[in-house]
Design a protein around this nucleic acid. Structure first.
Length: 595
RNA sequence: GGGGGCGUAGCUCAAUUGGUUAGAGCAUCGGAUUGUCGAUCCGAAGGUUGCGGGUUCGACCCCCGUCGCCCUCGCCA
């Protein structure tokens, strides 16, 4: 119990409140002591208000206020006063007033915080994660969390308006190898048996369709035990939806409506719909990426034909061994230093490419770098093919097809950011469509690129057994500003086609029965045509806020090694727990990371 | 598993490229200060330079190993 319960929040008071007696509760954000008069900035989720203590108003109170320190939690009663004209703080919502204190209750003291709880993130990621509750107290993080809430609220609003049902699915499910590595949960009641944490609600949402729950959606947690990235966490959140009696266009339209609604509600931005479509083949050829940032026009240009006959062996040999040569013309990139170009080369080699060939537009032809390896005619042809001007930088990668695209596509993205080619504040969502059904696995055997329930395009079904790698899928990814927001597909709803697809990836009848038996059984009982999609909530919020790490929009994220620095999770368990689970531990690996 | 960056006071950083007493700002503590809002001024305290080993007359600096944080490739249907 405490006596001075707040009557207002710290962001509420304005000049029109002058003369009122109110009570504020909050944290001490700043303290300015003039010996006589003492100022305190009081903060809560809603804002910040200056409190002033004066000895002439209450000497004992002013003395008590001297003991206040950063992050003390206090309750202050006082009279709202208009500030003297010269003391008005511009740019502060409550800057026209201050609270002249007549009562103070220290609700809790605080140790000196390990870092300052200020708007500027002056602390390292490590400190922020260890003391996450203090990091979250900072205004920018509070803003991020509020935005996250508003995005979720707007999404649910749109889904409800479109007639979707919010239904949940189990987190503890059966382990099915393939796809992302699962987190495993041992079963106490069934010794030697394990649950897996759901990596997505995929199977269940399809079974909802079999069950007639047309138009399902959910905001759900997903778990994948894979390596982390700036935009990947082992535990993340998806907008998940699935619909019956639909084709690609219906799912995309539903998503466009929901995404547009979120943009309108959260940013006040109107997105033109429908979103443009681009085929996977075009994305890879022109951008070297299946999630290109199309906000800047920097395209990969194929010069394989020119390279084939070149005297420059780096080019001709790459082509002779079945590779390709592609180039990128960076407008104005000629000013980049040798050192900067070397950094690009280092990166390219890091992704497995052999190297980077570079030239600069100068004197009406091309010079610098590898120019001496080409004839004048070749330089002219390259310059013309890439549309280069004097002052431009030309970058080429000659390599195996996939590596070439990945290397140049990566360079394109890096240069777009480095040279600020991107129009800030622009939003260009689009769909990448016609993904390949399969990709070559380790031993050349086709693997599902999306997942095994994805339907092939009708025109390509005949190729399933003969040229599986040429079969295109009825799959689609939603891409926004170079980020893959999510992907989905029209599913296979007929058992005969499903069996053919499973056979292509080499699953034996026994395996099929073991892994997907219940799914196929369900399809025996009238599965409707259906399809859906899942979008990454964390990435979505990150994009809306213009941030570049997913960690800043997840309240309690893990480090890149998958640890929670605040809890020190994961951690060990006591022998009794292991006994109950009938689990014996093998010796820990040498790196000493065992709990 | 591979490539790269970083690790120095509670926090954020510096240390003339190997030279003897490792500095600054903020925070902390003490003092001064009656209109500030990153308050100001004076003073104090604060260090196993992530950890282990090596090279050297001498190591924050060079070498090897290791741990941690970040970026990235693989991986993530």
């Amino acid at each position: 119990m405490y006596t001075l319960k707040r009557t207002q929040t710290c962001g509420a008071l304005r000049a029109s409140d002058a003369g009122r007696t109110v009570i504020l509760n909050g944290w001490v954000e700043a303290r300015r002591d003039f010996g006589g008069v003492l100022f305190i900035d009081l903060r809560d989720r809603y804002g910040k208000t200056q409190v002033v203590f004066r000895p002439e108003v209450d000497a004992a109170l002013a003395e008590l206020a001297q003991s206040l320190r950063f992050e003390f939690v206090v309750a202050v009663r006082g009279v709202v006063k208009a500030r003297p004209a010269e003391a008005v703080k511009k740019g502060m919502e409550t800057g026209e007033i201050e609270l002249e204190a007549t009562g103070l209750e220290i609700l809790n003291e605080s140790k000196a915080p390990p870092f300052e709880v200020t708007d500027e993130a002056a602390a390292s990621d490590e400190m922020r994660l260890k003391y996450r509750y203090l990091d979250l107290r900072r205004r920018p993080m509070q803003r991020n969390m509020v935005t996250r809430h508003r995005v979720l609220a707007a999404f649910r609003e749109s889904m409800d308006a479109q007639g979707f049902l919010d239904l949940d699915t189990p987190i503890l499910i059966k382990n099915t190898p393939g796809g992302a590595r699962n987190f495993l949960v041992p079963s106490r009641l069934w010794p030697h048996q394990f649950f897996a944490l759901a990596e997505s609600p995929q199977i269940f949402k399809q079974l909802f369709q079999v069950a007639g729950m047309d138009r399902y959606f959910q905001v759900c947690k997903c778990y994948r035990d894979e390596d982390l990235r700036a935009d990947r966490q082992p535990e993340f959140t998806q907008f998940d939806l699935e619909m019956s009696f639909v084709d690609e266009g219906d799912v995309q339209a539903a998503v466009e409506q929901a995404v547009s609604h979120v943009f309108q509600k959260v940013l006040g931005v109107t997105l033109p719909t429908p979103f443009p479509r681009m085929t996977y083949a075009e994305a890879m050829d022109r951008y070297g990426s299946d999630k290109p940032d199309i906000r800047f026009a920097l395209h990969l240009v194929d010069v394989t034909d020119l390279a084939r006959a070149s005297a420059f062996r780096v080019f001709s040999e790459a082509v002779a061994t079945g590779g390709i040569v592609k180039g990128l013309c960076v407008p104005g990139g000629g000013t980049m230093s040798r050192k900067e170009i070397d950094e690009l080369t280092t990166w390219v080699k890091g992704v497995g490419a052999k190297g980077l060939v570079w030239l600069k537009g100068e004197g009406g032809t091309l010079g610098g770098g590898s120019a001496k390896n080409f004839s004048a005619e070749e330089l002219a042809a390259l310059r013309s093919r890439l549309g280069a001007n004097d002052g431009d930088l030309l970058l080429f990668v000659a390599d195996e097809r996939g590596r070439c695209k990945v290397a140049l596509g990566g360079l394109r993205t890096m240069l777009g950011q480095k040279l600020k080619l991107v129009k800030e504040g622009s939003w260009e969502p689009f769909w990448v469509v016609e993904f390949p059904m399969f990709e070559a696995g380790p031993e050349g055997r086709p693997q599902a690129k999306h997942h095994v329930f994805t339907s092939p395009m009708p025109d390509d079904v005949a190729l399933l057994e003969t040229e599986p790698l040429k079969v295109r899928a009825r799959a689609y990814d939603l891409v926004l500003n170079g980020v893959e927001l999510g992907g989905g597909s029209i599913r296979i709803h007929r058992k005969d086609l499903q069996r053919r697809v499973l056979a292509v990836i080499g699953l034996q009848e026994g395996d099929i029965r073991d892994k997907f038996g219940f799914m196929l059984d369900a399809f025996d009982y009238g599965a409707p045509p259906h399809g859906g999609i899942a979008l990454g909530v964390d990435r979505f919020v990150m994009l809306l806020l213009g941030l570049d790490s997913i960690r800043d929009v997840i309240p309690f994220p893990k480090t890149q090694k998958g640890q929670c620095l605040m809890q020190s999770a994961p951690g060990g368990v006591i022998p009794k727990q292991l006994d109950e689970l009938h689990i014996a531990l093998k010796p820990a690996p040498e790196d000493g990371r065992a709990g």
